[in-house]
Amino acid sequence: MTTLTSGGLTSGVSAPPGGLRRIGSARWRRRNLTFDKITFFLVFLVIPVAFYIAFVVSPFVQAAYFSLTDWTGFSPGMNFIGLSNYAKLFADSTFLQAMGNNILMAIVVPVVTLGVAMFFATLVTVGGSTRGNVKGLRSSSFYRVVSFFPYVIPAIVIGLIWSQIYDPSAGLLNGILTRLGLEQFASFAWLGDPRTARWAVMFVIIWGLVGFYMVLFIAAIKGIPAEVFEAARIDGAGRFRTAISITIPLIRENVQTAFIYIGILALDAFVYMAALEPGGGPDNTTLVMAQQLFTTAFTKGQFGYACAMGVVLAVITLAYAGLVFAVNRFFGGKSEVGE
């Protein structure tokens, strides 16, 4: 079933040519409503979705309603106050700062993580000889397995580990730096200096995630028929060009899903921060919305206000996903859902 001519490649494909065959085109037609179909839909869609709505969506919808109230979170009563929580929110400089931090993270973390992951995946898969078949590196499975380790460790534990490593006096990092003769780092507070804190925490998140996406991309690249690479080589494409103009377009959909999922994580980042910077970091440079939301809800007892923050967070996350879809489509990807 796979037919692939080198013609498509020599023309410098930036996107897979049309005619992709997918299954998502079956049209719902009323006259097809058989007993089989009805029960099928009922069991396959209606019940799971009802379950999902009852346990996940409806609590969230209620929380969204709370955002229009002055609920403390503990009282039985609450008053409807319209949009004033939202008005307060956009005048709250701390929250806006947290939003800015989150947005910076949602840009840096996905780009760096996925960039590094893609780079490593490329090294592992096509770093081998150019003679004969396209080859990967020796002991690539070792790199794969090792890189994946951090993903298995709970985020809270990753945070704990790194807060120890970053410890100014007894931490591993400064220990190494001072042994290398860099005495100025003797008591340097990586997590406590406004110049370094946000990069230090982003590094931890990236450290934790690169391996997962690397494994993802390796598997995806391995799914590309070898002839594609052979053909590219015959055409004289170098490694770099091959990666840019062949590999990435061919695994475009993986990259999109990866971008969305990691973006959701970067916009949340609560667990990492709870361990690394529970207080929001120096000058609040690492404060994220979820943290602000948490203290507002539980310590300050302004649950309605916290729910408004939650709604804003959800909207930003959805907007981010929409942006990723749009960018992908702009560069020639297919639409993300339906037809």
Binding site: S163, Q164, D167, S169, A170, S187, A189, G192, D193, P282
Partner: peptide, 16 residues
């Protein structure tokens, strides 16, 4: 003042 406190877990600082 011992530097680095803003990056030190408080219990670790107290142990210092």
């Amino acid at each position: 003042m011992k530097p680095g406190g803003s990056g030190t877990v408080f219990t670790a600082a107290q142990a210092q």
